[in-house]
Amino acid sequence: TTIHVGDLTLKYDNPKKAYEIAKKLAKKYNLTVTIKNGKITVT
């Protein structure tokens, strides 16, 4: 599972963990989490 945050690309083997991290990042920086085709993007 890949999380895209701006220019950063973070890879995680565990999709659930990746989603949790994405949610935390989104909350911290007041951003939105988008999931599309298995890719998690924080914008």
Results as ranks from 00 to 15, higher is better:
residue 19 Y to N: 05
residue 3 I to L: 12
residue 29 Y to I: 02
residue 26 A to H: 03
residue 15 P to K: 07
residue 1 T to F: 12
residue 20 E to F: 11
residue 1 T to N: 09
residue 19 Y to E: 07
residue 23 K to S: 08
residue 40 I to M: 04
residue 38 G to A: 02
residue 39 K to V: 15
residue 18 A to D: 01
residue 15 P to N: 07
residue 2 T to V: 12
residue 35 I to V: 14
residue 42 V to Y: 03
residue 28 K to D: 05
residue 2 T to L: 10
residue 17 K to P: 01
residue 41 T to S: 09
residue 21 I to Y: 11
residue 37 N to S: 09
residue 42 V to S: 00
residue 12 Y to A: 06
residue 9 T to H: 11
residue 27 K to P: 01
residue 36 K to F: 11
residue 4 H to S: 10
residue 40 I to T: 02
residue 19 Y to C: 11
residue 32 T to W: 04
residue 30 N to A: 07
residue 10 L to H: 03
residue 36 K to Y: 09
residue 36 K to S: 14
residue 21 I to N: 04
residue 4 H to E: 10
residue 5 V to K: 04
residue 42 V to R: 00
residue 28 K to W: 09
residue 16 K to N: 09
residue 21 I to W: 11
residue 11 K to I: 15
residue 23 K to Y: 12
residue 35 I to D: 01
residue 17 K to G: 03
residue 40 I to G: 01
residue 10 L to K: 02
residue 22 A to Q: 00
residue 18 A to G: 02
residue 11 K to N: 12
residue 16 K to C: 14
residue 41 T to I: 15
residue 36 K to L: 14
residue 30 N to W: 05
residue 3 I to F: 02
residue 18 A to S: 01
residue 35 I to K: 03
residue 32 T to P: 03
residue 5 V to M: 13
residue 38 G to W: 04
residue 7 D to T: 13
residue 11 K to R: 13
residue 2 T to P: 06
residue 21 I to T: 07
residue 35 I to S: 03
residue 23 K to L: 15
residue 18 A to M: 05
residue 38 G to Q: 04
residue 31 L to F: 07
residue 12 Y to G: 03
residue 6 G to M: 09
residue 16 K to I: 13
residue 42 V to M: 15
residue 19 Y to R: 06
residue 15 P to T: 07
residue 7 D to L: 09
residue 30 N to T: 03
residue 25 L to E: 00
residue 24 K to D: 07
residue 43 T to L: 10
residue 22 A to R: 00
residue 41 T to M: 14
residue 10 L to V: 07
residue 21 I to H: 08
residue 13 D to K: 10
residue 11 K to S: 13
residue 28 K to Y: 10
residue 38 G to P: 00
residue 28 K to P: 00
residue 8 L to V: 10
residue 39 K to R: 11
residue 33 V to H: 00
residue 42 V to H: 01
residue 25 L to D: 00
residue 34 T to D: 06
residue 43 T to F: 10
residue 23 K to F: 13
residue 18 A to R: 01
residue 39 K to L: 14
residue 6 G to S: 05
residue 7 D to C: 14
residue 24 K to R: 13
residue 2 T to I: 12
residue 41 T to V: 14
residue 23 K to D: 07
residue 32 T to Q: 11
residue 9 T to R: 04
residue 20 E to Y: 13
residue 33 V to W: 02
residue 40 I to L: 07
residue 32 T to C: 10
residue 14 N to F: 05
residue 26 A to I: 03
residue 4 H to F: 10
residue 22 A to Y: 05
residue 17 K to H: 11
residue 16 K to T: 12
residue 39 K to F: 14
residue 19 Y to L: 15
residue 32 T to G: 04
residue 38 G to E: 04
residue 40 I to C: 06
residue 1 T to R: 01
residue 42 V to D: 00
residue 43 T to W: 09
residue 3 I to Y: 01
residue 37 N to Q: 08
residue 24 K to Q: 12
residue 2 T to Q: 07
residue 37 N to F: 11
residue 37 N to D: 15
residue 34 T to G: 04
residue 5 V to D: 03
residue 16 K to P: 03
residue 1 T to W: 10
residue 3 I to N: 03
residue 18 A to I: 06
residue 27 K to A: 14
residue 3 I to H: 03
residue 33 V to Y: 01
residue 14 N to M: 04
residue 22 A to E: 00
residue 43 T to K: 11
residue 26 A to T: 01
residue 16 K to F: 10
residue 31 L to E: 01
residue 7 D to N: 15
residue 33 V to D: 00
residue 4 H to D: 06
residue 3 I to G: 02
residue 32 T to N: 09
residue 4 H to C: 15
residue 3 I to T: 03
residue 37 N to M: 07
residue 27 K to N: 08
residue 27 K to C: 06
residue 24 K to S: 09
residue 40 I to P: 01
residue 28 K to N: 03
